[in-house]
């Protein structure tokens, strides 16, 4: 983890209320992994907490984040101008870590929850992938074009206005005969994650999810972002979403 001063390189609205923010650092960035996140200041005295965002794209000097405006803090962040300076701690958390035996990986993303899955191929290029991206309707589709360049993608919308009709987990199940994964990596709404947990159990295919919790320090010290995680011995302990996560085995969480 490092606390770095970035320069805002580009901010653009990619769908209603959803922004792509690219930050640049003169200093070389520490090594990053898909599924890790950064913790960024809001630059408003009234809003003292930093905000966590997953890393969408990254290289040695820049990171791109996908930020949905959900409150005062994200509104302020998305109103930054290019050239502005902003501090962030980077990188934080465990990220997605498929094991060597996980050769076929299904990515299941819902809405902006697709973002943390994007860089998997960059980090683990020797795996076989299929990405299932679900959105509520055509107007809310984001990141699809980017994913299509890198992955074999199945698009679905709940209302059928684009791609296959219905929930993303149903689309995933329909394609099982052609793609049976060794592991599922996922991020999305709570309801979607519940459905993924169910299908993971049915198929006995492990699933790892990137979770979210209200967070404060982002470095593992304050213990406010904890979630109940089942341990190997069967006990349940409160673990820190920031540094023990944000990626957990979906079977170990109470969703």
């Amino acid at each position: 983890m490092k606390d770095i001063e970035f320069t805002v390189k580009e901010i653009k609205e990619i769908a209603s209320g959803i922004f792509s923010i690219t930050l640049f650092s003169d200093e070389e960035l520490p090594p990053m992994r898909c599924g890790q996140f950064l913790h960024m200041e809001v630059k408003d005295d009234a809003l003292p907490l930093r905000r966590p965002f997953c890393l969408y794209k990254f290289d040695e000097h820049s990171v791109t984040l996908i930020v949905a405006v959900v409150g005062k803090g994200t509104k302020k962040i998305c109103a930054m101008k290019s050239g502005e300076k902003v501090r962030a701690i980077i990188p934080i958390g465990n990220g997605f870590m498929p094991a060597p035996e996980h050769k076929k990986i299904a990515l299941i993303g819902g809405g902006v929850g697709c973002a943390p899955l994007f860089a998997l191929k960059q980090c683990y290029p020797d795996k076989e992938y299929k990405a299932f991206l679900g959105f509520s309707s055509k107007d809310n589709i984001v990141l699809y074009e980017d994913f299509k360049k890198e992955y074999d993608v199945v698009l679905s919308t709940d209302d059928g206005s684009a791609g296959e009709k219905g929930y993303v987990t149903d689309a995933f199940k329909r394609h099982l005969s052609e793609f049976m994964p060794d592991i599922i990596l996922t991020c999305g709404s709570e309801n979607m994650l519940k459905a993924v947990a169910k299908v993971s159990k049915e198929l006995s295919v492990p699933a790892y999810m990137s979770g979210e919790n209200r967070m404060a320090c982002g470095v593992g010290a304050c213990l406010v972002c904890t979630c109940a995680v089942k341990q190997k011995d069967g006990s349940v302990r409160n673990m820190r979403a920031c540094v023990d996560g944000p990626v957990f085995n979906i079977a170990d969480l109470e969703l």
Partner: peptide
Amino acid sequence: EGNKSPRIAE
């Protein structure tokens, strides 16, 4: 183990 989450409000 402390209290249930959420544990923080800004």
